[in-house]
Amino acid sequence: MNSTEVDPLLTAPAAPSHAPAAEAHPDHRMFGFIVFLLSESVVFLSFFAGYIVYKTTTPNWLPVGVTGLDVREPAINTVVLVSSSFVIYIAERYLHDKNLWGFRIFWLLTMAMGIYFLYGQAVEWSGLPFGFTDGVFGGAFYLLTGFHGLHVMTGVLLQLIMLGRSFIPGNYDHSEYGTAATSLFWHFVDVIWIILFVLIYIWQ
């Protein structure tokens, strides 16, 4: 009797014989990730709301000596980032068709475009005549672009991990959750940037 009692405890966690127990761990990660992104978007919404309040109520919006933001370079940056959303989709299609090298090339291209965006941002930041503590405008500008840039950087790092994983044999045979979630995160960062670009650069 004792041995039969020990048995279920030993076998339950891993045993395929207990069919319901094995089925009880289906993949909910994508669902959870979407819930997380919805929540994360509220941080950006709060910053956007704050920006709109500041923009419409602050008497001396731009710091002394600043006439406005140059739109040309950020516009190029925007085009690069938005296009990368299509490139990452192509990479995903290749992975779906089990063409690993096609996946890697387009995935790497996405990463390159993300890094170019970050580089462009860094160049823009270094050339600006105002800093983080120069009035509400300076604070809001660097807060929004910086928080978004942090997300781009996170996206590139996630992409690097997924690229590395593609060299593990059979890694993407059963689940493409990693790349699908990274790609969704990338689209999310993209959409946030479009709103941000309209708010900061177009609406001056």
């Binding site: 602050t58 008497p59 009035g135 509400v136 604070g139 807060l143």
Partner: peptide
């Protein structure tokens, strides 16, 4: 919660590096 997080981040910057998000003397709200 994300709204509180946003507010906390902004206050953290006001407190540590001297931004003026919530400082009325420097145009904050």
């Amino acid at each position: 919660l994300p709204a509180l997080t946003a507010a906390v981040i902004m206050q953290m910057f006001d407190l540590t590096v001297g931004t003026s998000f919530f400082d009325p003397a420097k145009g904050g709200d």
